[in-house]
Amino acid sequence: MTNKINITLSATKKEKPNADQLEFGRTFTDHMFIMDYSAAKGWYDPRIVPYEPISLSPSTMVFHYGQTVFEGLKAYRSSEDKVLLFRPDKNMHRLNLSNDRLCIPQIDEEFVIEALKELVSIDKEWIPTAEGTSLYIRPFIIPTEYYLGVAPSKYYRFMIILSPVGSYYKEGIHPVKIFVENQYVRAVDGGTGKAKTGGNYASSLKAQEEAEKRGYSQVLWLDGVEKKYIEEVGSMNIFFKINGEVITPSLNGSILEGVTRNSILHLLKHWNVPVSERKLSMEDVYNAYKEGLLEEAFGTGTAAVISPIGELFYNEENIVLNNGETGELTKKLYDTLTGIQTGNHEDVFNWVVEVN
């Protein structure tokens, strides 16, 4: 594959929304990155072109078998007007792990990061500067072979699109209410739970819809075998602070390894806060609540960064955490991580990558 990226700039620029009108994932920038794959050529024709619809045959495999993967990361503008990415290497490595699980050809991670930086640089005027805003980056791969057969595609398209965003939850950093799901399951060991693929999210919609009808922001998933052990919360990993120790479910083959999750673990260990990755049942959490030992809980993910949990609904009972308020450690983690991401806090881990 040639490393030359062909660039075609848009002849017209779209109107940019006001920062206070940003919804998550509703507005898109002027350009996108595209690269194609065939079994004969490998990955070829990397290009940046104006953002526009794509044309596909109704028989294209993407519409039928769900062989897709995607990623999510963000670009930020610092107070010194620098454009910063947060740990893009982790996202591209995880994309290749998802590729492996879905039988999609591996990408050149370093090249794709350079392409991403070029795209963000071209559309950097779209990066909002208001507090809590950023430019969301969505890389994804779809099969493009015209074939109605259950087999890995021989053709693919890799794309990156950009979207200026505000807070993922309307609550912002304020605590959210979570419904503990005990009927539906998200994934099981041996399935695709540890890959970032569309089918995992499609299967979550029914439970999410029912939780929202009852006034809850997200669903807390339990394991798919015993429906006993905590796995993820909605589109995030989850942490509990119990009697001074922070606990997050260990990666078990059905949990997505979040980049934010990994970053939180690094921060906690750096601060010498007791932290462990292990199996944790909902009964354990409930008992800790009854004993007055459940101090805080929060979700972590690229979209929301950190989302404090103020209430869990479990077995027809409301478990209220920290009087429904954001916990001290949760707030410190949020302030530190967002500070690193925006260049306002010392980056001792060298996580931030500047876009020229």
Rank of each mutant, 00 (worst) to 15 (best):
S167F: 03
W351Q: 10
F298C: 15
D89S: 09
R47V: 10
K177T: 02
V219L: 07
E226H: 03
G25C: 12
E354W: 04
E114K: 15
E291S: 11
E316R: 07
T2K: 13
N99E: 02
N315F: 03
K194C: 12
G190W: 07
L9T: 13
V49R: 05
K82W: 06
T60G: 01
T302W: 05
E346G: 05
E245V: 13
W43Y: 15
F240V: 12
R157N: 04
S57V: 01
E354D: 12
E71W: 07
L56K: 14
G324Q: 10
S204E: 02
E145M: 13
I107Y: 00
T326Q: 13
Q106S: 02
E212H: 10
R26T: 14
S281Y: 04
V180P: 02
E118W: 01
P46D: 10
I230L: 05
E325A: 08
A207G: 13
P249D: 11
V176S: 08
T129G: 04
Q21F: 01
G324Y: 00
G66T: 13
K4A: 09
V259W: 01
V112L: 14
Y156A: 05
N262K: 11
V320R: 12
K117Q: 14
A195S: 13
I122H: 07
Y147F: 06
S38P: 00
P50A: 07
I141L: 05
N91A: 12
E210W: 03
L294M: 09
Y314T: 01
E277K: 14
E231R: 10
K41Q: 12
L9V: 10
P274V: 06
K170T: 09
E209S: 12
V305I: 15
D36E: 14
G234F: 02
L9E: 13
R214D: 02
G42C: 00
D81L: 04
G301Y: 00
E257G: 14
K241C: 05
G324V: 10
A297L: 02
S307Y: 02
V275N: 00
V219G: 03
L333M: 11
I141N: 03
E209K: 15
N350L: 10
G327W: 09
E181L: 05
R186G: 02
F349Q: 02
G299L: 04
R186H: 08
V180N: 02
I142P: 01
I306D: 07
P249Q: 11
G42F: 03
S153P: 01
K154N: 14
V285N: 07
I54D: 09
G327D: 07
S153T: 12
D223R: 01
K74H: 09
G42M: 07
D100Q: 15
N252Q: 08
Q21S: 14
L321M: 09
S78F: 04
E295Y: 03
E328C: 07
D100S: 12
E118I: 05
E52T: 07
Y155S: 15
F239C: 06
L268A: 00
A297V: 07
I178L: 07
L222V: 08
R87V: 02
E226W: 02
F70Q: 15
N6K: 14
L148M: 15
D89Y: 00
E277I: 11
S163C: 09
G253C: 06
R101Q: 11
I104K: 08
L73S: 11
R186D: 06
W351V: 10
F349D: 06
R101D: 06
Y184R: 15
N237F: 04
E295C: 08
L148K: 08
A187M: 06
F298W: 15
K196D: 03
Y51E: 09
M32Y: 01
W43M: 14
